[in-house]
Design a protein around this nucleic acid. Structure first.
Length: 575
RNA sequence: GUCCCCAUAGUUCAAUGGAUAGAACGAGAGCCUUCUAAGUUCUAGAUGUAGGUUCGAUUCCUACUGGGGACACCA
């Protein structure tokens, strides 16, 4: 945002020392008293073979001289000083305010990027419930996609659903044996999740059930009519549930991949791998020896000739390369599968795909419970729909309490947005490498570092704007704002925070870390609230100041709105 | 045994190698006749251990300790 000024400073330094520093070395100092931009002179000191304190001091002299020589012109850099080894620049506050506040946040350009990126995310299992682990994945995927799109990439969002395998056989078994013909009116997918847990429980108690399940599995693969009809039902119910959740969360997919479609193709590829000498037989199974690449040997086809996850993944990747030819493929999948993906990418590489080097596993840590790992098998899961219901009940009660005059519908819509903001933000504020230990009280909290706090801050800004419109509608679009009036500590801090918006986005995109945006928004909201309590925007005595402050809070609101939307959270005008 | 992730306040989390390690929750004390108290102000409170690199390390490297996960027919 301050590129021109940075260039000027670099030019000053080059003139004085004949050394050219990079723009990255000019940073925003930690405290207002150190000015608006500073340079740590350690690097220069080394090159110039002088002490950093000395370098800073000499540069201040040289630069001050330059500045006074050009004093008659409107100078942006008002002065420079040295604090120990640090060289600090103080910019003209009025100029800075204007520069930052007149920039439309929505339209600011990020470094140019182009290309197509396929993003696979969400991946719940039909027949099992959509739990809070899937919530983390889905919400992370949505935010990532929004951020990548914002920076100019074309995104192909896809989902991969696993509708074959033993877990499905277990659900079919218990359904056929105990629940045939029965079905709940709603949330059937969730219901299946509980059936699955029950099947596991029964299996634990009576291990001989395994034979019955395995028989079902074989019938399924043999496409026996009755079994297939149950299987179809299960997939439909699950998908209906997932789609309902996706609609609520705002997840969209260009294509859904079903793993049943890749079994045969996968087997063909395994044959090719054998022919090419990449794979070999071992104990009846087909394996790929990856020891040369410091990876463990991997089974790609079971000894009974059936396919594995990896078999289908290879086939699916091949089809994706062919159909969409993406420049990059991002798999948003939990950290526990990092080895799997390293092996997959290596095999794709050996198979001859140049695209293999552009495949990326975006791993994130699990959502755990206080009692330990979640397990759909043991029924120790927190399902999304249960959690959402609790959040909704709470936000309904809170909203009703505050707005006795609102119609029911408005309360319901508001409460839903608040609930989603709370749940989504709770997942997104954590770094992807951090395990989230799920806590109901925390997830359902609307105070502190939460989504509702951000919504509240935004709504508060809108409220001021509304009030101003009714009291002074004649001055709706003020042209010449006196930015020099924004000179209190709180205002300067807010402006500084707004100026960071673009850098935060860039960093979040480069590192695939939506959490950076989340944390930034909390800081910004906090600064706004501090300002709010200390200063009044609407001040009858000083209209000029009101217009300047209106501009300020309007920009903060824009930054909050934009940031929230990028995270997949909708703002609220009132709450 | 090998590999991956993590270790900061009582708890949950922040901090492109830079100036005084920031928040939130919880605890204690304040602030609503004033633009929304889902807010805000004040108080108490932290970098696992030992080395190394560096002018400078919460950050990078090594070892150790502790936690989570993965490692041939699960996904």
């Amino acid at each position: 945002m301050l590129d021109e000024i940075k260039k000027q400073i670099i030019e000053f330094i080059r003139k004085a020392t004949e050394v050219e520093i990079s723009t990255d070395e000019l940073v925003i100092p930690p405290d207002d008293k150190f000015g608006n931009l500073s340079l740590a002179c350690f690097g220069l000191a080394k090159i110039l073979k002088q002490s950093p304190v000395e370098v800073a001091q000499k540069l201040v002299e040289a630069i001050s001289h330059e500045l006074s020589a050009t004093r008659d012109k409107r100078q942006v850099i008002s002065r420079a000083n040295a604090v120990g080894p640090y060289l600090n620049f103080f910019l003209d506050q009025s100029f800075l305010n204007k520069k930052i506040l007149e920039q439309d946040i929505e339209k600011t350009k990020l470094p140019k990027t182009k290309g197509k990126i396929m993003v696979e995310y969400s991946g719940p299992n039909p027949g099992k419930g959509f739990h809070i682990g899937h919530l983390r994945n889905t919400v992370l995927g949505i935010a990532l996609i929004n951020l990548l799109r914002r920076s100019g990439y074309k995104i192909i969002p896809v989902n991969y659903l696993n509708d074959t395998g033993t877990h499905i056989a277990k659900v079919i078994w218990i359904y056929q044996k105990y629940y045939a013909g029965k079905e709940p009116k709603a949330n059937r997918g969730e219901w299946l999740g509980w059936l699955y847990a029950e099947a596991e429980e029964k299996l634990q108690a009576n291990p001989e059930i395994k034979d019955e399940i395995s028989l079902i599995h074989k019938k399924l693969e043999a496409k026996e009519k009755l079994i297939i009809s149950i299987w179809k039902k299960i997939n439909q119910w699950s998908l209906a549930d997932f789609n309902k959740i996706y609609k609520q969360l705002g997840a969209k997919f260009k294509k859904i991949y079903w793993d049943r479609d890749y079994i045969n193709q996968g087997k063909k590829i395994v044959d090719e791998l054998l022919e090419k000498g990449i794979a070999m037989k071992s104990d009846g199974a087909v394996v790929v020896d990856l020891e040369k690449y410091n990876l463990p040997t991997l089974v790609v086809l079971k000894s009974d000739g059936t396919a594995l996850y990896i078999t289908k993944d290879i086939a699916m990747a091949k089809e994706r390369f062919k159909e969409y030819n993406p420049d990059k493929m991002i798999y948003v999948v939990g950290n526990e599968q990092s080895l799997h993906f390293r092996q997959l990418f290596k095999i794709l590489d050996l198979y001859g795909f140049n695209q293999a080097k552009n495949c990326y596993h975006l791993s994130y840590e699990l959502v755990r419970l206080k009692e330990g790992k979640m397990s759909s098998r043991a029924g120790k899961v927190i399902l999304y729909e249960d959690l959402f219901e609790q959040a909704l009940a709470k936000s309904l009660a809170e909203t009703e309490k505050r707005h006795l005059d609102w119609p029911k519908k408005k309360i319901a819509l508001t409460a839903e947005k608040i609930s989603l903001a709370a749940l989504k933000f709770d997942m997104l504020k954590h770094d992807t490498n951090q395990i989230i230990t799920f806590d109901f009280d925390e997830a359902l909290s609307f105070e502190g570092d939460t989504g509702p706090y951000l919504l509240y801050t935004y709504a508060r800004i809108q409220s001021i704007k509304r009030k101003l419109q009714t009291t002074k509608p004649q001055n709706k679009s003020k042209q010449n704002i006196d930015y020099s009036l924004l000179n209190s500590l709180e205002e300067k801090k807010l402006i500084k925070e707004i100026s960071r918006f673009n850098d935060v986005l860039i960093s979040a995109i480069e590192n695939y870390k939506p959490s950076l945006v989340a944390v930034y928004l909390l800081n910004l909201a906090q600064e706004l609230n501090t300002f709010y309590h200390k200063h009044k925007v609407i001040d009858g005595n000083n209209t000029e100041l009101t217009w300047a402050r209106l501009k300020l809070i309007d920009r903060v609101g824009q930054a909050l709105q934009n940031g929230l939307n990028l995270l997949g959270i909708k703002e609220l005008e009132q709450m």
